[in-house]
Design a protein around this nucleic acid. Structure first.
Lengths: 294, 294
DNA sequence: CCCCCGTTTTTTATACATAAGAAACATATG
DNA sequence: CATATGTTTCTTATGTATAAAAAACGGGGG
């Protein structure tokens, strides 16, 4: 039935918490741990029980003492901390991007469930959520059709992305001098420069920075539809480039420089400059994506 | 388990088909009927069997003859032709718009399932699909939160809508003279004028015309994300105004005139005019919606 | 009272079951 | 042999079951 991934993740996190404390120290209250771990008290208690059973802590009347530091090998492996629905996501992306699927392929819920070793319910739920990415389509009383990770997908994606990012960049520039975002953009610049300095070793960290950068700009004037669209972009870059490592270092370096140019433009408050920097970056990102699809 | 709504809908449709034929006439082949009814042959055969059982048709060796005209009372009632998932949609919208739900209300899958008299699976599936409308949000391992049909929802919605429609209108105007859309826009104008002439009696037909009009403009340069967003708009107008009939006639009349102005602007190919007509219409639509929410 | 912990109740995540519907296969008929 | 019907198999839509997780309840101690 339901898997205990929440417990296992919390257990691993608890190990990290205990390691920050000294032997013999008293653990925080269940409620405090609940907040720290981001789970319910029920799960906290289950974790504490597990820790007790392993002799890591001792439960005395109304308090719990650390008896022994947990070792790293007591951690649950990463896979066991992923909810089935998350595993399905990964499996599906792999299926899709490995090229098992060409445009027009029919997707069969039952078959996928078998292939992934999960219940059909979960596959179905996943497909329903995944629909918003525009890569699959449902047909009445029949399965789904995979529309393909094609050039037209990329073009349509970037058409929207351009509208949204230009809009946000302009609104961003219109913010008053006193706004805290100018500090955030400063530290964003610093992060970019840092990464650039060490690009050979850390080029893979760019993907996360990229996402953060674009979300910062967007967050200025929140719009739920734009935020939801960001998920699409994040998904595309996260998964697509996991299967397409060609020129990754060079690609990311170019993008970093474009970000820096955009940051400068933003700080200049000059709309024309901003538009140009923004469009330049998006055009280049689009070409890169198109190139890697072909 | 699965309901036989597909069969019942097909049965009703078959009645309509038979009524266009004469007594004693031979029915088309199963395959032909399959296409006409838009269902599988399995369902066609089930419908035919039902018609036989009722004495409406007689199955002779390899042909089926109409023996008796079916009466309207043999139709299955409308409710029985709606899949459970569709019923859930209606129930949920009613729950939402009747005001049982204020912003921040927690949505409980189990409770909704009980209230609507369906399985939790279906409610869950519905909520997953409904998420894209931006009115609800999921919380990890807990239920959903209803964010509310609020002014900020309307504002965010219209911000996107404006971007998309302006974009489409501009692309529309750039089409060559020979394009068939100019004819379509002509007949669109005719439809508007017709409706306007008979506005007192037919003002409720506007909603559908509105949707068609906006889809026509959008369809010029297809973009799956824009199309998907149209669904959001359609949903909002379809359901929201079902519970908000205030000033409906006047509202629709104004909108028709605005559409006519936009049509004229489009035909002029003058970008400035188009922009103005488009923005005017959207502003007025937005104000109307905001007004009805408050 | 307010927070803490033990206990009970409720809800969610996931699996499984099955009738309705679609699709594939087989056979007949012109 | 092409098309129509009869039959079998596979898939989807929807219900039910249950362990895990969350939330609610309740009694004590500061």
């Amino acid at each position: 039935m339901r898997t205990d991934t929440t417990f296992k993740r919390a257990f691993n996190d608890m190990i990290d918490i205990i390691r920050t404390l000294d032997l013999g120290a008293e653990l925080p209250s269940e409620n405090a741990l609940r907040t720290q771990l981001g789970v319910s008290r029920t799960t906290v208690r289950k974790v504490l029980a597990g820790m007790s059973a392993r002799g890591i802590i001792i439960s005395e009347a109304h308090k719990r003492i650390i008896r022994e530091q947990p070792r790293q090998k007591e951690r649950y492996p990463k896979e066991e901390t992923l909810a089935i629905s998350e595993q399905v996501e990964t499996s599906f992306m792999e299926w899709m991007l490995r090229g098992d699927a060409c445009p027009g392929t029919e997707i069969n819920e039952t078959e996928l469930a078998r292939k992934f070793g999960v219940a059909t319910t979960i596959v179905r739920e996943f497909l329903n959520r995944f629909q918003k990415y525009g890569l699959i389509e449902k047909r009445q009383n029949a399965g789904w059709v995979f529309k393909g990770f094609t050039a037209s997908f990329a073009l349509e994606l970037f058409e929207i992305r351009e509208m949204f990012e230009m809009r946000s960049a302009r609104l961003f520039a219109a913010l008053p001098d006193g706004s805290p975002v100018w500090k955030q953009i400063q530290s964003m610049r610093a992060a970019h420069l840092e990464l650039l300095a060490d690009i050979d070793a850390r080029f893979q960290d760019f993907s996360e920075l990229d996402s953060r950068f674009h979300r910062l700009i967007t967050a200025v004037a929140p719009n739920r539809f734009i935020e939801s669209f960001q998920d699409v972009i994040t998904m595309v870059f996260h998964y697509h480039y996991q299967w397409n490592k060609r020129d990754e270092r060079a690609r990311n370096e170019v993008a970093i420089r474009e970000h820096l140019a955009l940051i400068e433009a933003l700080e200049s408050r000059n709309i024309a400059l901003i538009d140009r920097a923004c469009r330049l970056h998006l055009t280049s990102a689009r070409e890169t994506l198109l190139h890697s699809i072909a």
